[in-house]
Amino acid sequence: MSDDIRNERTGERWVYSPTVRDHFFHPRNLLLDEPTEGSFDASGVVGSPACGDVMHVWLKIDKATERVSDMKWKTFGCGSAIAATSMFSVMVSENGGMPLADAVQLRPQDVMKRLGGLPNRKIHCSVLVDKAFRKAANDWFRATGQVERIQVDGARVVDPATGVTDKDIEEAVLEGAVTLEDVQKKLKAGVGASEEVRTEVEQLIRFYKEKYYG
C-alpha cells in the first residue's frame, strides 16, 4: 500500500493523502440501511455532471437550534467522492453540530483542506457532496416554510448564439478546462465567438478557476 506520494521536483501529488485513504477505507456516517419514513428531517440527491456519479445525503436537524445533529450519506462514486463526503459529514456534525446557516456556507475547499488535498481532476467529487448538502438544506427550508432561504443556482445563458450557460462553464472548468479553447472543446460549441461575449466567458472561466483551484 502506497501512502501519499509526491514528485519531489514538482510537488505533484498523484496518490491520495493518508487522510483521504483513512476516510475512504473507513467512511464515517455511512447510511447502511434504507432510511425509514420520518427518521430524517431532510434529504438531497444529485448526480455529477463531470463523471456521472450519484450522491445522496440525509440530515437530522435540531428544530430549536437549527444545528445539523446528524448527516448520513451514500454514494455511487470514486475514492475521492467517498472520502470527501465522509469528511464533510464529520465537519457538519462534529462538536454538537454546525448551525445550518454556517454549514451551507462550507466550501469544497474547506473539505479539501481537512483532507490534505485532492488531485485537480478530483475536485468535482467534493463539489458533489456540497451540492447534495445544499439540496438537502433546501429540502429543510421548504419543509419548515422558510422559502426565502432556499438557494438555487439558476443557470443563466451567457452566450445566446450557442445557448451556453454559466453552469455549463462551471462544469467545464470542473472537468479540467482552463482556457476558452478548452471550454469550447469540452462543450463542443464555439462559445464566445463575439467579442463582448468572449470577455464575459473568459471572466467566468477565471472566476470558477479561482473558486475551485485558486
Binding site: V46, S48, V54, H56, K131, E171, E175, K186, K188, A189
Partner: peptide, 21 residues
C-alpha cells in the same frame, strides 16, 4: 430510485455533448 439525480442538475457531460450536437 435515483433517476431524478440529474434532472435539475444537467446531464453528465458526455451525454450533454451528444444532445448539444
Amino acid at each position: 430510485g435515483n433517476a431524478s439525480a440529474f434532472v435539475s442538475d444537467g446531464r453528465p457531460h458526455w451525454e450533454r455533448n451528444v444532445i448539444l450536437n
